[in-house]
Write a protein that binds this DNA or RNA. Sequence first.
DNA 1: GCTATCATTTGTCATGGACATTCATCATTA
DNA 2: TAATGATGAATGTCCATGACAAATGATAGC
Lengths: 309, 309
Amino acid sequence: MIAEISAKPVADDACYNIAAVERDTGLSKDTLRVWERRYGFPNPVRDHHDERLYSLPQLEKLRLLRLLIDYGHRPSKIINRSTEELSQLIAARAPAQSAPPEIEAIIDQLLRRDVEGFRAALTQNLMRQGLLQFVTHTVTALNHWIGEAWLAGRVAIFDEHLYSEHIQNILRNAILAEPGGGSAPRVLLTSLPGEKHRIGLLMVEAVLAAEGAACVGLGTETPVIDIKNAAPAYGVDIVALSFSSAITQSAALAGLAELRALLPQGIEIWAGGGALARARKAADGVLLLRSFDDMRYALARWRVENSRR
Amino acid sequence: MIAEISAKPVADDACYNIAAVERDTGLSKDTLRVWERRYGFPNPVRDHHDERLYSLPQLEKLRLLRLLIDYGHRPSKIINRSTEELSQLIAARAPAQSAPPEIEAIIDQLLRRDVEGFRAALTQNLMRQGLLQFVTHTVTALNHWIGEAWLAGRVAIFDEHLYSEHIQNILRNAILAEPGGGSAPRVLLTSLPGEKHRIGLLMVEAVLAAEGAACVGLGTETPVIDIKNAAPAYGVDIVALSFSSAITQSAALAGLAELRALLPQGIEIWAGGGALARARKAADGVLLLRSFDDMRYALARWRVENSRR
DNA sequence: GCTATCATTTGTCATGGACATTCATCATTA
DNA sequence: TAATGATGAATGTCCATGACAAATGATAGC
């Protein structure tokens, strides 16, 4: 055990309207109302004009519910349990085993809230390993274990925010530092609307940059039509899309099919990430990448196939 | 005139359900339905089960409407004008004048889709001016003029995406390069849920870093409760929040009041950004910053007041 | 063990009514 | 003149309830 977090806010009279709860929990207003209708929870008081006012404990329980549902529980089975039981469910889900020591050492800095030490630990690892190793091993492992630590209640949400920001800093810095502007192929990097995770995208960009490809990063959540317009404008050879597990597999595959139909055949589409881990195959003409090694292999193949221009 | 963009997508049968329109326009489902009820626009066709399906032209007109409303027009006055008239209104708003030459030179690289040249131009400006000047003058001006260029139809959405990514790269790189880990005060930087603009936040971080403060950046969209928990955990003196004009002023002020009630008095709250430009004052105990100079002044004041510990 | 079929759960959408807030206008006061 | 206040129209958000599609789980059959 490394550190305790004090996650209990104090204010009791604080009341939140339905829009605030939607913002803070990610549960839509419709969902909140229909849960109340069907299951009797949450059961907010009403203000003088019959509008819902949620209490802080309700809001906290809603967040736990959201989390458990994301991890596969069904709403009706857990919605009427107490907040304590829900916390136990979450704790039970995460195996108590800890990460490899070198990873644990970095997480430890985060748990100590030692911002400077955390940054130094990351930088030191990057220097020792080089960008490629750092991304494919250290960052991959950190993503996994910080997720686990969060489930186990060891790190708070804001620690994850901080982690995400710092990894971005380090990766963007390393990408800029890669020698040369990059040559062929030219790769457009982005994600579809709804997919907000930036780290996966940056990891891809880092690997490509380390391999000497030219990257055009558009950030997250580019509508399909905009990707279709951007690809020829920037003269890219490949469009690479990242899908975290925040999005459903069917949504990812539908988006890929739509994009494939819009893009000219000469432009390849590469897709990878957690949401596609269990997919057998994507639409025709979409290359599914299950690992960074897959991607490096695909890159080598592309270069062979396009070697004589 | 510098470049032509081909912004007209082809797909005509493409139909969007109400959730997709909400995502792409930022207009809530309730608003879309009530506009239809009151003004007769948008008037989507229905699928076999009476659900709305919006066409691409409708979606484009809605985006124009959203933009004009953000700029002060009233919905009822403009909602029944044609898409062309709306475009003219927008063009009328955007003065045809162009940016100062040094800014225009950078935008020019973006319009040429010359990714490497664009990055080089930014880096060169940063080197020549230093971080503080670069942020308070060049980046501020670029934000403004790229917005104008978008209104005038000179740059596409994906160009803005690319701009945002590259500015992030440059700023994060520069922040990491600032000497020393920073000392007092320690500042927590983030935005409230709904506020996704990252550049403003990074600009603030850059200025603070240049002035030698210690920054703890949590990225965008941190719920109020998490800010309340994070501030003591990281031992910060100040919580700084950024509000772009994507959020309404009243929402910003409400969030600030809520946060002020939760945070201990010893921790200051600083707030700034476009959404607060017209605000007279925020909640008691919230410092409104209207410019980067304001912030530097506030920083100096804080240091004087806390000089003997 | 794997696939196909059926039942249940669950989130999203629709309708129409209501009202709090915001905005524009005009009169009034310092 | 500029700031303040009052008034009425506009605008967005919320509510209740009903309905159904998509996702999930269970069951039967090969």
